[in-house]
């Protein structure tokens, strides 16, 4: 599935549309270049899930966790990690399997460390500032999630 965003606000709105479909345990892997808008996308999700307070880049902290109406939102940024062992250090699998909703930025650094069932969202920026957002479901739950997202995004467009 492909979506297009023309602004940071639109990227956030697409995140909010995805938020409407999320269930506990869902994992979304966000790939894209520096500055493509990955954190903005998660800000849109967080706002829609009722997270109060600023949602900032987790690059330094690697993992930021927010309480929200439906449980917990985990926001990973694997940018600073160098090897898969580091994931054990940060309790990566315990958090992913801990029942919340998880977003993982820079997941493509560790392709073999992605869970079996996840939705891959790739944001690429064109030279004109337009972002193309491509969603690729891996396994069944991600397919449902992807279909729901497309539907909600279309309804709200």
């Amino acid at each position: 599935m492909k979506l297009v965003s023309h602004s940071a606000e639109e990227t956030k709105r697409l995140g909010a549309a995805l938020a409407a479909c999320l269930q506990p345990g869902d994992v979304v892997v966000l790939n894209g270049d520096l500055g493509a808008g990955k954190t903005q996308f998660v800000q849109g999700v967080a706002e829609a899930l009722g997270v109060t307070g600023e949602v900032t880049s987790p690059t330094f902290n690697i993992l930021l966790t927010y309480d929200c109406a439906s449980g917990v939102l985990n926001h990973f940024d694997l940018y600073r990690l160098e090897s898969a062992e580091d994931l054990d250090d940060i309790g990566y699998w315990e958090v992913l399997e801990g029942g919340g909703v998880s977003f993982i930025e820079w997941g493509d650094k560790f392709p073999s460390e992605m869970p079996d069932d996840y939705l891959e969202v790739a944001i690429t920026s064109g030279t004109d500032g337009v972002r193309s957002i491509k969603a690729q479901p891996h396994s069944t739950r991600a397919q449902e999630l992807c279909a729901c997202w497309g539907q909600v995004a279309e309804e709200r467009a």
Partner: peptide
């Protein structure tokens, strides 16, 4: 030269 930036263990 292997420099993981984080190693909480």
């Amino acid at each position: 030269g292997v420099v993981p930036e984080i190693a909480s263990r």
